[in-house]
Amino acid sequence: MKAIVTVTLKHGVLDPQGKAIGHALHTLGFTEVGEVRVGKTIELELPAQDPAQAKATAEDMARKLLANTVIESFKVEIA
């Protein structure tokens, strides 16, 4: 079973990388682009058979290490 953890900066936390990418997209002619936010995905191979259990485990991992909840939020999907 695979858990996909997506970590992004919290809303309201300045994302300079996102800003830079937004500028570059505008330069390329994608002028319709609004705010750009950058994050990361972490794929975890888990032995659990129960999706709810796998999700709970991955969320625990995210809170303890994968995300810094002072500045980042995360979501977990089970694939």
């Binding site: 900066l9 300045l14 300079p16 990388q17 830079a20 810094n68 002072v70 500045i71």
Partner: peptide
């Protein structure tokens, strides 16, 4: 210590 150190605003 509280808070976090983010990427420099200037990148």
């Amino acid at each position: 210590l509280p808070g976090a150190l983010l990427r420099n605003a200037s990148l």
